[in-house]
Amino acid sequence: MNDERDRDEEGRARSARPRDGLGRPLPYGAAGVERQPEGGVRGPGETVREAQRLLDAGMPFHAHEVFEDAWKSGPEVERDLWRGLAQLAVGLTHAARGNSSGGARLLRRGAAWIDGYEDRLPYGIGLEELSVWARELSARLDAPDGVRVDAAQEAPRLLGG
């Protein structure tokens, strides 16, 4: 890999820079948060447990990567579900980074993706609660006075109760 440009042999971007808990690049050589291995294949239960652990730790960017793996490796019929969950996590990431408008937009988009699964409770995921959480947080982000978002404090519960 060409470390200067963070590209692999085929020229695809492969960021080797360390990242913080919100996925922001840090200077080379800095201590960062360990990244999720790209392309990991987990079962649905393991995906939900790992993503929840990362959300609870205030690392929604990393939870997004876990959901993205499920979206790319899971069955076609579930891709919109995992895509929606990934967008909820990255929406929280943007909100915690201070990008209120981008965070709100991604939260609404993620909620729209998972709304197609409302009549089911796949893998125990509380989709209705997640959709409500996403829309309420996006409304707070859209408010004129804005809101400071702490990713760990705002982390949603994935499993329905």
Rank of each mutant, 00 (worst) to 15 (best):
R109W: 03
R148T: 12
D119K: 11
D145Q: 13
D142F: 07
L121D: 11
G110K: 13
I125V: 15
I114H: 03
A151L: 10
L106F: 13
I125Y: 09
L137A: 02
G103F: 06
R109Y: 05
W133Y: 02
R148Y: 12
W133C: 00
G116C: 02
G146Y: 13
E118A: 14
Y117K: 01
G126P: 15
R120Q: 14
R135C: 06
D150V: 13
E118V: 03
G124F: 10
I114R: 03
R105T: 02
R135S: 07
V149R: 07
R135L: 10
V147W: 02
I114E: 01
V132G: 00
R135V: 07
D150T: 14
A104Q: 06
R109P: 00
G110V: 02
P144C: 07
Y123Q: 11
R108Q: 12
Y123N: 10
L130A: 06
R140M: 11
A152L: 03
L121A: 14
D119N: 08
Q153T: 04
E128Y: 06
Y123P: 03
E136R: 09
G124V: 07
R148Q: 07
A139T: 11
S131I: 11
A112G: 11
A143D: 14
A112T: 07
G126H: 07
Y123F: 15
D142C: 04
E154H: 07
L106S: 06
G146D: 05
S131R: 15
R135W: 04
P122C: 07
A104T: 02
R140P: 03
R105A: 09
G146E: 10
D145M: 11
A139L: 10
A143L: 12
D142Q: 14
P122K: 04
S138Y: 03
A111R: 04
G126L: 07
G126N: 05
D142R: 12
A143H: 14
L106K: 11
P122N: 08
R120S: 09
S138E: 08
L127W: 10
G124A: 09
E129S: 15
Q153K: 13
R109T: 06
A111W: 02
Q153D: 14
S138D: 08
R120H: 05
W133K: 00
E154C: 12
E129G: 15
Q153S: 15
R148S: 10
R120A: 07
D150E: 15
A134R: 02
G103N: 08
G116W: 01
A112P: 06
G126M: 10
R105E: 03
E154F: 06
A143G: 12
D150G: 09
L141F: 12
A151W: 01
G146M: 09
E129Y: 11
G110T: 08
G126R: 11
A143M: 06
D115M: 02
L121P: 01
G110C: 03
R140L: 14
D142I: 08
W113A: 05
